[in-house]
Each structure stands twice: as C-alpha cells, then as structure tokens.
Design a protein around this nucleic acid. Structure first.
Lengths: 358, 358
DNA sequence: GCCAACATTGTTAGCGTTAACAGAACCGGC
DNA sequence: GCCGGTTCTGTTAACGCTAACAATGTTGGC
C-alpha cells in the first residue's frame, strides 16, 4: 500500500520509502547511536520527502510521558501573573516541555477543582500554580490534584514547594527609604487582603515602621485597581484635612499609586513636595508618570525560571525509589525566595517642613 | 492481577472491579446510550473508588483528535495580546479545547519556524496567531505550518482567515472627535511601523484629517513604549517652539500617551487647556491619569471569542469532503472585524484660542 | 579460519483507548 | 412458543510509537 495522500505519513511510510524497518526510523528520529551513517541519511531523506513528523500522542502513550506541564493562574492579564507566566513559558520551552494554561475566573473550591480536573484530563506531568490568593492556596492544597505541584507566591503552611518574591523585604526597603528621607511615619494603601502579597507587603511596611520606632497609621485597604487607589487617596486627603500628618505613602502596587497620584493632583497636593509616594511592581510606565514613580521591582523572569526548576526537581525526586534514603525521611518542601529591588525616582523626597498651622 | 498501587488505574482495572468489560466502561465514560442504568451506576462506583481518569493520550491516539489548539503570540505581557490571549483561553475552554501557547522572542523566519515546529510536535489541530507584525504574518504564511491557522490582527493579503479590531475606524473616530472640538489639525505619535496596528491607526488618522480638509503633519514614529512617547513628546514640544500649531495629539497607544503627558507636564503645558491628547487601548489606569485619558477601547474578549469560532469553523470545513460543492470553488478566507469604541474623558478639550503672538 | 564481541537491523509485543462487529438477553405480536 | 427487532454487553482489532529481544552482519585477535 502506498502512503495515502490524505493521511499524514507515519513511521511505516518512511520505513517503506527508505527500505528499512520502522524501528530503524524510530532510532533515527530519536538520535540513537548504532545506526549506520548511510542508513541515517537515507531515512532522513525519506522523512524530508514525506514531510514526516513524529506523532507525539503515540510516543506519549508508550513512554508514559506527555511532556506537558500545567499552569494554574488567576488573572493572566495582571502585570505580575503575566510576567511570571512569560518567564515560566520561556523556561519550559528551553527545558523541552509543553505548557497548558488554565486561567481561573474565581477562586472558589469548585472553580479550582474544575481547573485541576482540566489539567488532569490532559495528563500533565506536574503543575505550577500562580497562586497569590489565600483561598486559592487552600483550595489547591485540599484538592487531590496533580502532583508534583509548585506554588508561586503561595504562602507557607500549604505543604507545597513555594517560590516567591521577597515581598516583605521589598516593602521594608520602600518604607525604610521614606523614613531615611525624614518622614516621621508612612501611610499604606494595601492590596486586596485576600492576596498573600498584600499581606506580606503590609508586614514589611509594619516592620520597617516598628524598627524606626514610628507609629503605624491604620492602613487603607484597596483592591489593586487604579480606582481603589484613587478612592483611598481621597480618604487619605480627608485624614490630612483633620490634621493628621500625612507626608509619605507606600502603595502596594503601581496601578493604585497611579490612582493615588490622580487624587493628590486633584486636591492640589504636589508630589513629592507635599507628599511622597512609593509604589510596587515597577510597571513600564512607572518611569514616565508625573512625577516618575519610586517603586519596587520584582524579577518575574527569575521567578518563572526558578519555579520551573523546582518543579523539574520534584519530578526527578518522584522518580527515585522511595525509602532509598529512608533515614532522612521525606525532604521538606523547598521554599525559594527571589529578592525585590527598590527603584528610587522622583515621587519620593524629603519630608516637608512641619506645618506651621499645627 | 489486582491493580498495581503504583500505576494509576486504567479502564481494565475499573472493568474488573465492576465486573464488566472495558468497553462498557468506555461507554459509561463517554456517556453512550444503551447502557443499563444499574450497570452505569456500578461502573461509576468503581471509577470513583479507584479514582480513575481516562487517559487522554490513548484516546487521542485512537480518535486522531488531540483537542489541542495552538496559539502563537509575540509578547504576551503587552496589554493587547494578553487580553486577546485571555479571551481565546476562555473561549477554548468553553468549547472543550486545550490550548498550547508559544511566545515568540523575535519574528525572524527562523524563530517563527521553530515556534511552528513546536506546535506541530504537539499535534495541534489548528492554530491562532496573534500576529500584529508584518514580518510575522509573512513568515507564517510562508512556513508550511499547522493548518487551519487564523491570524488575529493579521492584515490582508496573507490568504489566511483574519480577525481584527477595526483600528482604522477607532483612530478615525478619535481624530474626528478632536476636529469636532475645533482643532485645526491633529498630530500623531505612531506605534512601531512594523506593526500592522500602527499602520491602520495612521491610516485612520490620515483619512479623518483628509475628510476634514486638514493638513496632516509629519507623524512622529514611536515604538509603543512609554519612553518613546516621552521622547516624541519632546520633539513635539520643539515643533511647537518653532511656531507650528500643536493643539491636539492622537497617540497610537495609552502607554506612549503616558510618556507624552509626562513630557508635556515637564514643559509646563496643560492638558487639555494647551494641548488635547487622545490615546488608544483604554488600559485600566487610563481613567486615573492626570488628566483622565480620552482613548479608544478594543473588545479583546470578543476578538478572542470570534477568532476561536473562525478556527472551529475552519476545522469543520476541513472535515467536509472537498469538491462537494465544487461549482463555487474554495470559499475565500473570512475576514471578521470587531469594532473599536471611543471613550471620551478629560484629556481632550476645545482648541485653545489662537496664539496672539502669531 | 574460527570465535567472541560488537555494531547494526529486524521482529514482536505492548501502551490504553475507541470502533466495529458479534453475541446474548429481552420484548411484543402472532 | 417462535420470530424479527431492540437493547445491552463482550470480543477483537486497530491507532503509531518505543522497548526488549532476536537475528543478522562485521570486526579483530589468535
């Protein structure tokens, strides 16, 4: 039988054309040694002539390895998740893995279970969850989902390996920077409290104030959106109007900082002359705001690379026979932390001279 | 043989536990009719007990359908592509398809060929390319890549089905809006000229000026980044200093508009009192800039939905026997256009009174 | 020239599923 | 009670590939 022109060619077609067995074709395709150079060339010619591509499905079936990794994310259009995802994607491709991505619409246990199911259906070999939310981590740890599973920004106590940016340190550096500029205290507009990142940034802010012996004002709670930054900015202006000293604000992300800048501008307050503002994320436009925003940069590409490496390590560990090194017990889930870096620009400046009205 | 605790269970294990043949299990799993309710229940119990999941690889091998669609994108961290991707992802999941995504680092034929190969390796059934760049479309149309293939923002003449936002109309509306406010002409900061979107927006800008009988100043060429917006803003200010009338600027995206606002602010020019600015994209922070930015919104979710539908249509068309309707010849590649919508905010206002110095 | 060792190739048997066909059990009408 | 037609279930054979083994050359040392 000649190869059907309708069907795409299979190994047997190549084998027939090259005058060898299909196994020899397999050996050539997989770069096995012990194939005569002349044979390799002949097979290669046949492959080119037919436009043959190895059927990954059949290969996966017999090798029991799909080479697919899953990624669970919440909202891939947000700056952080999008960057992290891009980092993972690049690292995965370099490592020869394919990626299957699920974006969650909500973090309910049902939604998470559905997403996990979607990935299991595809026989992913392992999974990375970009899981910055408390509820998501809970749901993931509870579901008998795909393993191994690595949590990015996952928080502790989940029993999962975690890769995260040192949010608390970044926040601490930002606040410390403001205190060094002479501000007596620093206000805070936090992110959505359901997010672990919001919590870590609050913690870093609070620690820096404590270390400086400064009182921590009640934080204003936003939800990451520019709108909430704007609204919290107006509240802050109200506070100021009642006589409270407001000379510096640490905002949990750049988008909210943009909203805050808008609110301050509307109220006729100058940045940094009247109030200093520091953001978090270092979005590309931060440098071009009015004024250019002091902020904290995260190396998302590295987070992606590291989390993939952790996942591949876990995959490798799973292959080793259990109990081989039984004396040491199961190794604890690793927790890798990527540093954050302060970028000082013009939105932060020295504290203004004390208000003569007071 | 009892099911090995190491291996995950297969149909045969379920069949043994339920006391039926594996084929009956298959029927239950696939929801075939003609299975007795009592049998279905027994099989379902066995499935639950063993935690059985159908092996999608084996299924794909025999059905010759992987249920995987490929997406080729250039930079998924940019606003437009990220939104489009999210739209496609959601639509694909709803349609029961999996997605495999490749982010290109460069649009060279070699890079594109590699990406295409990556998708072919995975036996994708079809492909969507988020291909806003001229070189990318060229490379894609040339490569004997995966088919069917739908191009998002792909431009014409490629012979591929295309889904795109009506960039030219959006740009036209933006410029028209400025003219209606009394501006005698509108300057333009364009995007990277390698991008088709940049070209369409230039075309829309030019047409609106022509229709109004206004002269079109030389456009300033940016590259979408806030930095280039800033730099082109400074050039614009130079033009103004030489006596050229610059009262309104249409900027090809919001990020560059942010850079422009910064440049204008530095130069002491007020928006919109001295100069009106209109952007494109309607990023979430546009509403909270100083001043809130008039811009053009694109419905990326709809682009995602529509492009998936076009792809599925093409898939369906491929299944039908060729020549069945031979008289009409092959149907032309469809070209679907999603409208864009102007969002008027405060960065655009009436033209200032003519400069008394002139 | 013979044997061991190696290099090279072919043969066979799955991987876990679905499709196609083949039986078996059951139904109502005569 | 027997028949045609359902309804349900089981058997067998792919899908395209790799692993394991078997069977050939091919080489080199004596």
């Amino acid at each position: 039988m000649t190869p059907q022109s309708g069907r795409s060619p299979v190994m047997a077609d190549v084998a027939r054309l090259a005058g060898v067995s299909h196994q020899t074709v397999s050996r050539v395709v997989n770069g096995h040694p012990n194939v005569r150079a002349e044979t390799t060339a002949r097979v290669q010619r046949a492959i080119d002539e037919l436009g043959y591509h190895r059927n990954s499905t059949a290969r996966a079936l017999v090798t029991r390895r799909t080479n697919v990794l899953g990624v669970i994310a919440f909202d891939t259009t947000l700056f952080g998740p999008a960057q992290t995802l891009a980092g993972i994607e690049r690292a995965a491709r370099e490592a020869g893995y394919f990626l299957s991505i699920v974006s969650l619409d909500d973090v309910s246990p049902a939604g998470v279970a559905e997403a996990v199911d979607y990935l299991i259906q595809q026989s992913v070999e392992g999974c990375i969850a970009i899981a910055p939310q408390r509820a998501l981590v809970r749901a993931l740890a509870a579901v008998p989902g795909p393993r191994p599973l690595v949590a990015v920004e996952g928080g502790e106590g989940s029993g999962l390996p975690v890769v995260c940016v040192d949010q608390a340190q970044g926040a601490h550096d930002a606040v410390r920077h403001l205190i060094d500029l002479g501000h007596r205290t620093v206000h805070h507009i936090s992110g959505d409290p359901e997010w672990l990142e919001a919590e870590s940034r609050v913690a870093g802010w609070r620690r820096a104030l404590e270390e400086a012996g400064a009182a921590a004002p009640e934080p204003l709670v936003g939800d990451w959106s520019p709108r909430s930054g704007y609204e919290m900015g107006r509240r802050l202006i109200q506070r100021r109007a009642t006589g409270e000293e407001v000379t510096a604000v640490f905002v949990a992300n750049d988008q909210m900082a943009i909203g805050l800048l808008r609110a301050l501008g509307e109220a006729g307050l100058r940045v940094p002359d009247d109030i200093s503002v520091v953001g978090f994320d270092d979005v590309p436009e931060a440098e071009f705001l009015a004024p250019p925003l002091t902020t904290v940069a995260q190396d998302f590409a590295q987070v992606g690379r590291v989390s993939l490496r952790v996942l591949l390590d876990e995959l490798g560990a799973g292959e080793r026979p259990a109990g081989e090194d039984a004396a040491s017990g199961p190794p604890p889930a690793p927790r890798l932390i990527v540093p954050a870096r302060l970028r000082v620009r013009q939105s932060s400046g020295p504290a203004p001279a004390p208000d003569p009205h007071r």
